[in-house]
């Protein structure tokens, strides 16, 4: 079976995504009005990945902001990750938070609680340029 990979370039309202089979990274901002249009290919990718042999996987969510439509998509994405863990994948989920930003921290905690996952919270410095 060929391992799936993916690379999506960031836009002004959608995040960069990279997946090399071992590390899945979402970075930037996610404020699309119809976020599912963007995330459905990522959900499909993780569904395919889950069919492969269990292995180590790093998942990093490094968003500075996401809207509520994206919020549900992130939940659905991490729900897939939870299923992979249940199948034997060894996954670390890193959830980045800029300078104790309440929005990102609370968002991570809600998904963590709902899925019964344990995130690693990584503080990243606010670069002073980008709020959204």
């Amino acid at each position: 079976m060929i391992m799936q990979t993916l690379s999506i370039t960031e836009t002004r309202n959608s995040p960069a995504v990279s997946f090399d089979g071992h590390a899945f990274v979402i970075k930037g901002v996610s404020t699309m009005v119809n976020a599912m249009e963007f995330y459905k290919s990522l959900l499909a990718l993780l569904d395919e990945c889950a069919q492969e042999a269990p292995r180590e996987l790093q998942v990093e969510i490094n968003l500075c902001y996401y809207n509520s439509s994206s919020n549900k998509c992130l939940y659905l994405l991490l729900e897939r990750v939870k299923r992979m863990i249940d199948k034997g994948f060894r996954v670390q989920v890193t959830w980045c938070v800029e300078d104790d930003d309440e929005f990102m921290r609370e968002g991570g905690q809600t998904i963590e609680e709902l899925l019964g996952l344990k995130f690693h919270y990584k503080q990243v410095p606010f670069n002073g340029e980008r709020l959204f």
Binding site: M32, V33, N34, A35, M36, E37, N67, S68, S69, N71, K72, C73, Y75, L76, T110, I111, E113, L114
Partner: peptide, 18 residues
């Protein structure tokens, strides 16, 4: 939380969370 776990989206892409 309940709405977050509901996988349905509105016709226009809303998650029902706004």
């Amino acid at each position: 939380k309940a709405q977050m776990m509901n996988p349905e989206f509105g016709e226009k892409g809303g998650a029902g969370l706004g």
